[in-house]
C-alpha cells in the first residue's frame, strides 16, 4: 500500500518545472528572431495580432523543447549540462513531458493559424516536426552532421515570423534563415569543444567525439568563412542598410578572428586554460546573432522614420 500523501509529492509537478520543460532560454532567442522577422516584413500587422503571433511561435518552440526532453531523458541524465532538467531530475515524468509537448504543439499551431494565417501555422508545425523528429529522434544520435542539418529548426523562426506578417516567404526571409543556419555549426561546435566529455559519456556523435577536436576546429573555421557572405549579403536586401552592413562587417571580422584563434590553438594550451578561448567564442557567437538581428530592427525603424540612405544598393 502506498501512502497517498507521499505518492502525491512524488508525482505532482510544480508549475515552474513545467515552464522549464519549455527551455525558456532557447525560447527567448526564438521569440526575438521571430519578432524581428515579423517586424521587418513589408506588411504592417496589427500590434495585438503581432504580439499573439510571436507568443504562439514562442510556445511552439517551447513545445518542441518539451518533446526533446521527453525523447532525450536518457542521455540528459548522463550529461552534466542537462542533468538538472526536469525529467532527469525526477520533477516531471517523461510521459507528462510528452503530453505537454504534444498538446502545446497543437495549441500553438492552431492559435497561430487563427491569429495570423494558416501558411505560417503549417510552417510552425513543420518546424516543430523538424526539431522533435528529424533532429532529436533521428539525426542527433546518428550522425556528426546532426547540428548542421538540425540547425534548420532554429533557423526557421524568423521565416515563420515573416510568414505570419506576409502570408509567404521571400528572399529576405531566406536570407535570415541562412544567417542562423550557417551560424549554428560554429556556435555548437565551440560548445562541443569544451563539453566534449559530456557528449562522449552519453554517446552522442558530435563532431568532437567522432572526428576529434582538431577536425572540429577546422570545421569551425570553414563554416565561419562560409557564414560571412550570408551575413554581409543580407545587408544588401530590402531589409538591410548601412547600419546592418557596418554591424555585419565588424562582427564578421571579430567572429573570423575568434574562429582562426580556435583553429590555430594547440590542444594542450586549451586544456591548460580550461578552454577559455572556446568559451569566449561560444559566448561571442550568441552576441553576434543578437546584434545582427537588432541591427535589422534598427534599419526598420530608420526606414519608418525615413532617415536611411535613400540610394542604398539593394542588390538581391
Amino acid at each position: 500500500m502506498t501512502d497517498t500523501s507521499a505518492s502525491a509529492t512524488h508525482t505532482a509537478s510544480d508549475f515552474g518545472d513545467v515552464v522549464s520543460l519549455l527551455k525558456p532560454r532557447v525560447m527567448s532567442l526564438v521569440v526575438f528572431t521571430a519578432a524581428v522577422g515579423l517586424i521587418v516584413a513589408p506588411v504592417s500587422v496589427h500590434p495585438f495580432l503581432g504580439f499573439c503571433a510571436i507568443l504562439f511561435i514562442g510556445l511552439g518552440a517551447g513545445a518542441s523543447g518539451a518533446l526533446n526532453m521527453w525523447w532525450d531523458a536518457d542521455i540528459d541524465a548522463i550529461m552534466k549540462r542537462t542533468q538538472s532538467r526536469p525529467v532527469p531530475a525526477g520533477k516531471v515524468t517523461a510521459h507528462n513531458a510528452m503530453l505537454v509537448g504534444l498538446w502545446m504543439s497543437v495549441l500553438s499551431v492552431a492559435m497561430l493559424g487563427l491569429a495570423a494565417n494558416w501558411f505560417a501555422a503549417a510552417f510552425l508545425a513543420f518546424t516543430i516536426f523538424f526539431y522533435a523528429v528529424i533532429y532529436s529522434m533521428w539525426l542527433k544520435r546518428s550522425t556528426p552532421q546532426n547540428i548542421v542539418i538540425g540547425g534548420a529548426a532554429g533557423a526557421f523562426p524568423p521565416m515563420v515570423g515573416w510568414a505570419a506578417a506576409t502570408g509567404g516567404v521571400s528572399i529576405e526571409a531566406w536570407g535570415m534563415f541562412m544567417l542562423i543556419f550557417m551560424w549554428t555549426p560554429p556556435h555548437f561546435w565551440a560548445l562541443a569543444l569544451f563539453m566534449n566529455d559530456d557528449y562522449t559519456k552519453a554517446g552522442v556523435p558530435m563532431l568532437t567525439v567522432t572526428h576529434g577536436r582538431r577536425t572540429t576546429r577546422k570545421h569551425i573555421m570553414v563554416y565561419t568563412v562560409l557564414l560571412t557572405p550570408f551575413c554581409i549579403g543580407l545587408g544588401f536586401t530590402s531589409i538591410g542598410g548601412p547600419v546592418y552592413f557596418l554591424a555585419s562587417l565588424i562582427l564578421s571580422v571579430m567572429f573570423l578572428r575568434g574562429a582562426y584563434g580556435l583553429y590555430t590553438r594547440a590542444e594542450e594550451t586549451a586544456e591548460a586554460d580550461k578552454y577559455i578561448a572556446e568559451r569566449r567564442v561560444f559566448k561571442f557567437s550568441l552576441f553576434y546573432l543578437f546584434i545582427l538581428f537588432a541591427a535589422l530592427l534598427v534599419e526598420e525603424v530608420m526606414r519608418n522614420l525615413s532617415i536611411g540612405l535613400e540610394n542604398w544598393p539593394v542588390v538581391i
Partner: peptide, 22 residues
C-alpha cells in the same frame, strides 16, 4: 483574454493579413 482580443481585432479590422509576396 487572448482569444477574446483576437476576435475583437479580427472583427473590427476585418482585413486579410495575406498580401505581400513580391
Amino acid at each position: 483574454v487572448i482569444v477574446f482580443g483576437i476576435t475583437i481585432v479580427k472583427m473590427t479590422k476585418g482585413h486579410n493579413m495575406e498580401a505581400f509576396d513580391h
